[in-house]
Amino acid sequence: MDYRKMGGRVYVRIDKGEEILSEVKNVCRELHISTGTFQGIGACGEVEVATYIPDKQEFLPHVRNGMLEMISLMGNIVTGRQGELVQHAHALFSAFDEAKGRIDYLGGHLKKATVLYTAELVLVPVQGGKIGLRYDAATGIDVWDLEA
């Protein structure tokens, strides 16, 4: 992984074998970023996305391996209730299915994505404040605490 800060943005290259979400956190730690957004594209070899099942309050995982084009990655990083960095990201991947002669898609809440060739991200830190998390009893999940 390598990165370069230019203006108010951080441009991040994630290399083969590295896990995207881990590397985003590493950059945030190194640059003392507690709140920000990120987006990116790339090529991954192993991904896990998930669908949230509200009735069970759990995620249903979907794992895929192979040549997966990361068509879109969007996410944010905030400060958790214990002061830790917390990410929330969604991604969409495509893969050519030779047997079917078509492109299949896989998307959802990103849990893990290991780079096969490269990934290119833009990280935009929030200037002058931070966003935290608070538990929302109505939904049963942590949501942004804009008073943090």
Rank of each mutant, 00 (worst) to 15 (best):
H62E: 12
E30Y: 10
D145A: 00
K130Y: 08
N76G: 13
G7M: 08
I33F: 07
E120H: 15
M67A: 11
M6I: 15
Y52F: 15
L146S: 06
A119V: 03
F93W: 06
K111G: 06
Y11A: 01
R81N: 08
E23R: 15
Y117L: 11
H32I: 09
L68T: 06
G128F: 03
G128V: 03
E19Y: 04
L60R: 12
G132Q: 01
V47F: 04
Y117T: 13
R29W: 08
A95N: 10
Q127I: 05
F59T: 09
Y52T: 07
R102K: 15
V63E: 12
Y52D: 06
E98D: 13
Y52Q: 06
K111S: 10
P61W: 01
E84I: 05
G42Q: 11
S72W: 06
I33G: 05
K111R: 14
G83Q: 05
V143I: 14
E46M: 08
I141V: 15
H62F: 12
L133T: 09
T79M: 14
E23G: 00
R29N: 12
T114H: 00
D142E: 14
D136S: 09
V24H: 07
A89N: 10
P54A: 08
N76I: 06
L121N: 03
G40S: 09
N65F: 07
F59Q: 08
M70F: 04
K25M: 08
G7N: 01
A95Y: 10
F93G: 02
Y11N: 09
I103Q: 10
M70V: 07
I71M: 14
V143A: 04
